Simulated scan of single mutants.
Amino acid sequence: MNNWIEETFGVRKPIIAMCHLLPLPGDPYYDEEKGMKEVIAWARKDLLALQEGGVDAVMFSNEFSMPYLTKVHAITVASMARVIGEIMHEIKVPFGVNVLWDPEASLDLAAATGAAFVREIFSGVYASDFGLWNPNAGEAVRHRQMISARNVKLLFNIVPEAAKYLADRDVVEIARSTVFNHRPDGLCVSGLTAGTQTDVSVLQKVKEAVGDTPVFANTGVRLENVREQLRIADGAVVGTTFKVDGCFENHVDPTRVKVFMETVREFRKNL
């Protein structure tokens, strides 16, 4: 199953960089005065900074649509599609999408924009900051078939941020059963919140449990720990560490991206 990673990203152990979108129409903190032009301008600036820094892929996410919904409104998908469409001609790397936190909406957006992958909470039942979380992987996979998005890869986040699995199950057991029952294209292992380091011991246990299924470190990958994380993980999703001063709310800092990616490229030479 690892073959799809190199086919999609052109490298082993890819770095997927987050392109966080500002609040969108319908979101509580949307800036109606500046409007969608500001949202597009912000996304374009971050995209170009990430690509200039040499990342292997980007993932567009409505990260500032707080507080998140587990079933988004149509305006969110429409707005994200507009943003991606406006800057599509400047996207030079493979890209994915994540409509927080709605699997079917993420797939709809992927189908409409040509995204190569989606990351979502596809399975499990959780008590979360957003209420009871009860996605249905079977429905999501069938939805992918229905909208002709069969080639879109599914990255299952099995340790959701700001949520706890309701059943008393070890993460290794969850990973193993998720792979058996749902056949994900990859698993994402996270810390508690955005920017919180993924526990190395958890990564190791999950990787050992799921065999050939790719495992991504999903949060908290930084310059000082990226080698350690990539020794285990098959790739990483990076957001906060690429921001100015490492601050979640800021723009991407191309210098931070370049230094990080130089370290990653040096590491990959020895694979």
Score class of each variant (00 low, 15 high):
142 R>E: 15
162 A>P: 01
261 M>T: 02
2 N>P: 02
123 S>I: 07
270 N>F: 11
169 R>K: 14
216 F>S: 00
225 N>Q: 09
46 D>M: 04
54 G>N: 04
239 G>C: 13
242 F>W: 05
232 I>M: 10
77 V>R: 06
14 P>F: 05
263 T>Q: 11
262 E>S: 12
255 T>H: 09
48 L>K: 14
22 L>K: 10
196 T>V: 14
231 R>P: 01
103 P>L: 00
43 A>D: 07
231 R>Q: 13
142 R>A: 14
142 R>N: 10
34 K>F: 06
229 Q>S: 03
55 V>I: 13
84 I>H: 10
39 V>C: 11
18 M>N: 01
40 I>T: 15
82 R>I: 06
249 E>H: 12
122 F>M: 08
7 E>I: 06
5 I>N: 04
64 F>N: 11
157 N>V: 15
213 T>S: 05
4 W>M: 11
192 L>Y: 12
226 V>Y: 03
4 W>N: 05
76 T>A: 06
239 G>A: 11
149 A>Y: 01
3 N>P: 02
31 D>P: 05
256 R>S: 09
27 D>G: 04
42 W>I: 00
35 G>E: 08
271 L>W: 07
186 G>F: 01
73 H>S: 11
118 V>W: 02
40 I>R: 08
245 D>S: 13
232 I>K: 03
100 L>G: 02
214 P>Q: 09
35 G>A: 06
144 R>E: 00
18 M>D: 01
244 V>P: 00
